[in-house]
């Protein structure tokens, strides 16, 4: 029996969060006398095998097909289910990406599995998976367990360290085909907003804008700051709603969960639904003109003041520091 880790590929790269998951899965497998297996699903699944071999896995399943070029939930479900039926794992561990969120419930229903989504940690003991998951916009943590024969777990990014380990994996290509008409769905268009920018969910530094960023000038300041810091840009719901920032940048209960080394909240009040998505950031800087704003309750460094005055100075000094 195994713990099977799902390796997510996004824009031609392995998601770091999947490496976090496989690193942790290997440890749990060792503790429980299980094997560590991995599955890579995608148009070019084979290209990532060498990278995954470095994580001490016994078997790597690859499912490769042109049908898997873009994310379509039905194809991904069929591919994952096929590998689960082949491998018969005890646990399948996923990084909690949007693509995984899209299919997790359906895969669980199909395989009659227990499923625990969006956990911040999980353990396996005596055939029971015990997990901690933030609930109610991270107001509380729920200790959740499942003793089902098969348990699916999805893990929030940043929950574990990436650790390599020597191994010599056997690579098992899995045949995959599907009648496209049976999908009953079709992609009309993909509006990609990321381009070559830094992946927000895995960024080391995030500069996030809120309603305090009122206009084009404010947006430019945020962009400049993120540029000098090599940071990804995030946003609160308010400025996504107004269309000033792309929906892909939204952080929080509805949006993405991030856990960077440095999170700079610019003109964000700190509503629980926003904080839910960034509370695990290592250092939090808040810039807000209202000294009572709740964001200051969680900020490592809180600056009370006008972002339009603070950001230009901050950017200038950072530039100076960099040129030294």
């Amino acid at each position: 029996m195994s713990i099977l880790s799902y390796i997510a590929i996004s824009e031609g790269k392995i998601k770091r969060s999947s490496l976090e998951v496989v690193s942790h899965a290997r440890k749990l497998a060792e503790n429980n006398g299980l094997e560590t297996h991995a599955v890579i699903i995608g148009e070019n699944a084979g290209e990532f095998v060498d990278e995954i071999k470095k994580f001490g896995v016994g078997k790597i399943y690859t499912v490769k097909s042109p049908l898997l070029k873009d994310h379509i939930n039905r194809t991904l479900i069929e591919a994952v289910v096929k590998v689960i039926e082949l491998d018969k794992p005890k646990v399948v561990a996923f990084a909690s990406t949007e693509a995984v969120k899209d299919v997790l419930g359906a895969v669980a229903a199909r395989t009659d599995a227990g499923v625990i989504s969006d956990v911040s940690s999980f353990d396996l003991q005596d055939n029971t998976v015990r997990a901690i998951r933030p609930i109610m916009a991270t107001k509380f943590l729920a200790e959740t367990e499942s003793s089902a024969d098969l348990v699916l777990v999805s893990v929030r990014s940043g929950s574990y360290d990436v650790k390599e380990s020597p191994g010599d994996a056997e690579v098992i290509p899995v045949e995959f085909d599907l009648d496209e008409d049976s999908l009953k769905q079709k992609i009309r268009e993909i509006i990609s907003t990321s381009g070559d920018k830094i992946d927000l969910s895995e960024a080391n530094i995030v500069v996030a804008a809120g309603r305090g960023v009122k206009d084009h000038e404010g947006k430019k300041l945020v962009e400049e700051l993120s540029e000098v810091l090599g940071a990804a840009i995030g946003a609160s719901r308010s400025v996504v709603e107004t269309g000033m920032f792309s929906p892909t940048t939204q952080i929080g209960q509805t949006g993405k969960v991030v856990s960077p080394q440095l999170y700079i909240a610019v003109g964000i009040s700190g509503a629980i639904q926003h904080v839910s998505g960034m509370i695990n950031s290592k250092t939090i800087v808040a810039i807000n003109k209202d000294p009572e704003a709740p964001i200051f309750d969680i900020a490592t460094y809180g600056l009370v003041g006008d972002l339009y005055k603070i950001l230009p100075l901050f950017i200038e000094q950072l530039k100076e520091l960099k040129s030294k």
């Binding site: 227990g114 499923v115 015990r130 509380f140 959740t144 367990e145 499942s146 969680i298 809180g302 009370v304």
Partner: peptide
């Protein structure tokens, strides 16, 4: 039903920060 909640915890508080004015 294949999962159950066995307990709840408070979210660990963050280290108190510095407020600069």
């Amino acid at each position: 039903v294949k999962t159950k909640i066995t307990g709840y915890r408070d979210v660990p508080g963050r280290e108190p920060g510095k407020k600069l004015e």
